Amino acid sequence: MKEVLLVGFGAVGALCTLTSKSLSRSGIARVTAVARSNYGIVRGKYSLCLTTRRSRVCNTVASAADQAYDYVVVTTKAVPELRLTPEILSPLLSPEYTNKFAQPTYLLLQNGLNVEKDLYNAIRKLNQGKPSIVCAALYVGTNLAAPNVVVTNDLVNHFSQRESLFLGIYRHEDHTTSANSADETALLQDLGSIFQRGGSAITIVPEIQRVKFAKNFWNLSFATFATLTGYTVPSLFRSPPASKDEQCNPYLYPITAELVQQHSIPAIKTTMKELLNRDPDNSHVPSMLLDARRSQPMEVEVIVGEVHIDMLYALLLVKQNQILGRMMAQ
């Protein structure tokens, strides 16, 4: 039986713990879930469900740091302006814990790029060997509509030939290795088996950063525009013209138009299919837009700041700074 600690009981954390595609349903994992802001609701409403699956719920990481874990799954949002991941996990990195227990493998189910760096450096300082961190790209359409209500949709079904969860080894400052070692393969298969037996579809990849970049591009393209406009993704698309004779394209010189059709349009469509692959009729509310509507801090730095899309970054910082300012004033 694998011991798994799940930190963060929002939409993704709840899916990992309670739904038909959950770690606790795998039969090979005992899950300890840390629910901070919604601990009372989770404890009261789902305590029987968790107990019958040989799992438990705690209100802090400190209260859960009473045993060894094989895996720590982090589903909190990465908002470095508020707290870094090592700060959230500090009880597991403290001398009181590390003197008793070995460090687990950490799985970061977080949006954005380079979310692993701070945790990697914090574990390195413990002098307990090379940090073991698994990266993930998670494709799932889910929102926490209320403290005890998780809404999901068929977003994943709109991805051609894609599974919902990609897993790969985090290799710090290593941008050339493109194959898993035997030990890395064994680790990923062991971790992946828990998700698979719980009902989730996973894909193990030899180099995860490319997959994470594609997922981040997807977030960057849609979540940011939705947040700045205040409208969900369908508003970014337009319906095709009612008549084939209706002019809806700018005029191009015939030779230029032929080159555009021959080279530019196929390239754009291929990029859209590979990186975006989004159904315009999907009604999912991007989490960044949902945070903005609720005046909650957004994942601006890790999604937009890491790729230096300066105009989007600057505009989103205006929203983010106002949200953080109101929080500080309370």
Rank of each mutant, 00 (worst) to 15 (best):
14 A>Y: 12
27 G>H: 00
120 Y>F: 14
74 V>N: 03
309 I>A: 08
79 V>Y: 14
46 Y>F: 15
142 T>Y: 06
106 Y>H: 12
15 L>E: 11
274 E>W: 08
172 H>K: 04
28 I>K: 01
118 D>S: 14
115 V>S: 11
20 S>P: 05
175 H>T: 12
299 E>Q: 05
281 D>S: 13
172 H>F: 14
290 L>W: 12
13 G>L: 04
40 G>I: 09
90 S>D: 06
121 N>Y: 13
42 V>W: 14
243 S>I: 00
133 I>W: 03
259 L>M: 09
148 N>A: 14
232 T>L: 10
117 K>F: 11
144 L>C: 05
134 V>G: 10
2 K>N: 14
89 L>E: 09
37 S>N: 15
106 Y>T: 01
38 N>D: 07
33 A>M: 13
215 K>P: 04
109 L>M: 13
1 M>F: 10
298 M>T: 06
37 S>L: 12
280 P>W: 10
191 L>S: 03
158 H>V: 01
15 L>R: 00
215 K>I: 02
51 T>C: 01
77 K>G: 09
17 T>I: 09
259 L>G: 00
208 I>H: 03
291 D>K: 12
218 W>F: 12
289 L>W: 09
144 L>F: 05
56 R>H: 08
3 E>Y: 08
232 T>N: 14
16 C>F: 11
201 A>G: 04
24 S>I: 05
68 A>N: 15
295 S>N: 15
98 T>I: 08
100 K>C: 02
178 S>C: 08
293 R>S: 07
55 S>L: 14
315 L>K: 06
129 G>L: 05
189 Q>W: 15
276 L>P: 00
77 K>N: 07
81 E>Q: 13
325 G>H: 08
299 E>K: 04
214 A>T: 13
250 P>K: 10
272 M>D: 10
198 G>D: 04
95 P>Q: 10
159 F>L: 14
112 G>K: 10
178 S>M: 12
190 D>Q: 11
4 V>K: 09
53 R>S: 13
210 R>G: 09
132 S>H: 05
30 R>S: 13
274 E>V: 15
241 P>A: 14
264 S>Q: 07
107 L>T: 10
176 T>A: 10
147 P>N: 03
312 L>N: 06
256 T>E: 14
263 H>K: 07
69 Y>C: 08
278 R>F: 15
269 K>E: 13
52 T>P: 01
61 V>Q: 00
215 K>S: 05
207 E>Y: 04
312 L>S: 05
92 L>V: 04
170 Y>T: 12
12 V>W: 01
78 A>L: 08
43 R>Y: 07
25 R>S: 10
107 L>Y: 11
170 Y>A: 05
190 D>G: 05
10 G>P: 10
330 Q>K: 11
57 V>W: 06
177 T>G: 09
36 R>P: 00
111 N>Y: 07
220 L>K: 02
58 C>I: 01
160 S>H: 15
208 I>N: 04
40 G>T: 08
75 T>K: 07
98 T>M: 04
258 E>R: 13
231 Y>V: 05
173 E>D: 15
308 H>E: 15
172 H>R: 01
315 L>H: 12
80 P>L: 13
273 K>I: 00
278 R>L: 09
251 Y>W: 08
154 D>N: 13
67 Q>W: 09
312 L>R: 10
116 E>A: 03
266 P>S: 08
257 A>K: 02
119 L>Y: 11
32 T>M: 08
35 A>E: 05
114 N>C: 10
213 F>I: 04
227 T>Y: 06
162 R>S: 13
72 V>P: 01
